[in-house]
Amino acid sequence: MKTFSRIVQVIIFSLIAGIVINQFHSQGMSWRTLILPAFSKYGLVETNMIIVSADSALVLFNNKSTIFIDVRKNEDFQIDHIPLAHNIPSSSIMRADFSDFDQVIFKNNVLLYDQEGDLERLKLISNVWPSQGEKRVYILFGGYLSWLQNQNPVEFDG
């Protein structure tokens, strides 16, 4: 019993230490990424997230009412992406580090997409997304691959 109690103490201490270190670490995980998904799972945190297909995304693209955010790594974004999309890698979003990005983005409806449409990751990202006001966060179902399969417009860099 004593051994079990000590093991639990060590794990709890390490967990608290890990959370604290990550908050002060420039590459660390934001507490929002760790805590908010637990609440949103049970509807305790409201999210304006809407999952859309590549067809619906194309309508949003043509309306120009939504800013497209590519959350893939910069190297992938450099190869090709949806035209006019901004690249904010998911690692930056997980750290809740948005200081380097144009703040106008957060005052608009956004569509987040990754390579394959990893819904769990994108939902996590949408929880942390600092949208201002009642702005919507769309998620592209099937990711960039579904956009390509639909033969929607693509922009190549270089």
């Binding site: 060590v10 890990g18 995980m29 998904p37 769990e120 990751r121 996590l124």
Partner: peptide
């Protein structure tokens, strides 16, 4: 593990390793 639990793992495991190493 899913994305969220992996994030927690990345918070816990390194800290636990350092604590255990020191112990």
């Amino acid at each position: 593990f899913g994305t969220w639990l992996s994030q927690w793992g990345a918070v816990l495991i390194p800290a636990l390793e350092i604590v255990l190493g020191l112990m």
